[in-house]
Computed example of a mutant assay.
Amino acid sequence: MGLHATILRPAYFIGNDLTIKDVVTQYGIYPMPIGNKGLAMVDTADIAEVAALELIRREQSADVLPLERINVVGPDTLTGTDVAAIWTEVLGRPIAYPGDDTAGFEQTLRGFMPGWMAYDMRLMSERFLTDGMLPEEGDRERLTALLGRPLRSYRDFPAKVATSA
């Protein structure tokens, strides 16, 4: 198409887990069926910073830059069990990962959101189970160099939630 742009392709947003923090902290369960392939969860602040840097780079370029794609990922690739273990460590009490029941997940969500959205969440989760959201070779290094600092880690999220509770 001759498009001259940067396309950002972010992985699972760490901030998505704000919606389930009460389930984790009150009931001791990490309910997101994210499977065991792994998700390179990314902080939305990192996505925003990468976007801003790319906008500035393109704006300041003397030449038209070619199409570019950037996978925006976090520093770790985590499974459901990994995430529950992080919450366990941060909260100092057991947090369980109940598994990958996407149909049950959808049914629960229908109590809080429109049916079409709950179904969409189920489809997304099923993709996590089959494919995960894995970084490509060099993605993390590229982002770290672009940002000039380490990527924000999922571990920081429950630590922040625990101190604000």
Rank of each mutant, 00 (worst) to 15 (best):
V50K: 02
A48K: 04
P75S: 05
G99E: 08
A62I: 03
E49Q: 11
R57I: 02
T44H: 08
P75V: 06
G74I: 03
L65K: 06
P75T: 07
A85H: 01
I70L: 13
E89S: 14
Q107D: 14
L65Q: 13
I56P: 01
D101G: 09
V73R: 04
Q107R: 15
F105L: 05
P98F: 13
D46K: 07
D101E: 07
A84K: 07
E49D: 14
G74S: 03
E106P: 01
L55P: 00
L55V: 11
G92K: 08
L67E: 01
E89D: 15
G104V: 11
L109N: 09
E89T: 15
G99T: 05
I86D: 04
E49A: 04
A85Q: 12
G80D: 02
A51W: 04
D82A: 09
L78P: 01
A96C: 14
N71M: 09
P75G: 05
A84Y: 11
L53D: 00
T79M: 07
V72I: 14
T77Q: 04
E59N: 14
T88M: 12
E106V: 06
I47P: 02
V83A: 12
D76I: 05
P98A: 10
T102E: 12
F105V: 02
R69P: 00
T77R: 01
R58W: 08
A85K: 09
A85S: 13
Y97F: 14
T88F: 07
T77P: 02
V73I: 14
P98T: 11
D76M: 10
E89A: 14
R58M: 09
D46C: 05
D101R: 09
A62V: 04
R93W: 12
V50R: 05
E89R: 15
A52P: 00
R69I: 10
G74N: 02
A45Y: 10
E89F: 12
L109K: 10
I47V: 15
L78E: 01
I86S: 02
A103Y: 13
V90E: 09
